[in-house]
């Protein structure tokens, strides 16, 4: 018995030591499905997009992520409506060509850029790139310096100037997603919590076929097929951030 117990303690001790020294090894073996091979992307079909669809998508996103409605210029926006003229500044000026588009509204959100300036500038890695292409936020690490907001060329980031809970009715708060605290930056996280469960983002679900979602690295995916068939544009491609959100026009 004595020898056995000693042996057990030895093995348990070594295992604990190994685990504490190389915790990543263990995590790697858990394996996210094809991590590193996936790059999630969206394609918004602007021909089918209408006000009703946009509202549904925005409500689904903001409601399920406890995004407060703040009625001033310190608002929080994850997914919102704006005109093509504003989403694509400089590209809609020439009325000769796509004149019907300039004042038409479309949806804008975080582009989950492949080369994101916000991640580059963050001094604490509170915003970082996931292996599946999502530009993530760690709300607990963010110091609220707002450097990422200056760096984002799409205005996709919001800062909690207020305590957001002041603008959320307690009966409307979903416990499925964390609320945030004042003094941190937030934005669309491409519904990472749903992707991890094998579901599609809320906006994609609510838009019922108007927004395509899938793996941009997989030529067989639905999104790649629709991108191969139709003409699509990205916001500010000249900046080299490589957005993962496409607009089918």
């Amino acid at each position: 018995m004595r020898a056995n117990r000693r042996k057990f303690l030895k093995i348990a001790g070594l295992a604990t030591l190994g685990w504490s020294v190389f915790p990543n090894l263990l995590r790697a073996s858990e394996g996210g499905e094809g991590a590193g091979h996936v790059r999630w992307g969206l394609a918004i079909d602007t021909k089918k997009l209408n006000d009703e669809v946009m509202e549904k998508a925005i409500v689904a996103c903001h409601k399920n992520h406890n995004v407060p409605h703040i009625p001033d210029k310190r608002e929080i926006k994850w997914l919102w409506k704006t005109t093509f003229h504003k989403a694509f500044p400089g590209q809609m000026l020439d009325n000769m060509h796509i004149s019907e588009y300039a004042e038409k509204e479309t949806l804008v959100l975080c582009n989950h850029c492949d080369n994101p300036p916000c991640v580059r500038v963050c001094p604490t890695k509170a915003t970082f790139k996931r292996a599946d292409g999502i530009t993530m936020m760690d709300f607990h690490r963010c110091i609220g310096c707002r450097y990422c907001m200056a760096a984002c060329p799409f205005g996709a980031r919001s800062f909690n100037f207020y305590d957001p809970k002041k603008f959320l009715k307690s009966e409307e708060i979903t416990t499925q997603f964390p609320t945030r605290t004042k003094g941190v930056v937030e934005k669309c996280l491409l519904c990472y919590e749903r992707l991890d469960e094998g579901k599609k983002p809320y906006c994609v679900e609510a838009a019922e076929g108007v927004i395509y979602f899938g793996n941009l690295n997989d030529p067989e995916s639905e999104i790649r097929k629709v991108l191969a068939e139709r003409y699509a544009i990205k916001r500010k491609p000249e900046l080299g951030t490589f957005p993962s959100v496409y607009y089918l026009i």
Partner: peptide
């Protein structure tokens, strides 16, 4: 810089998670 931070009590995260790619 300190008064500009949204979460000044987390200021030392800059040392705890040093990130040389950030100009800050």
């Amino acid at each position: 810089i300190v008064v500009d931070l949204g979460q000044p009590q987390r200021m030392l995260n800059v040392l705890l998670h040093p990130t040389p790619r950030s100009i800050l």
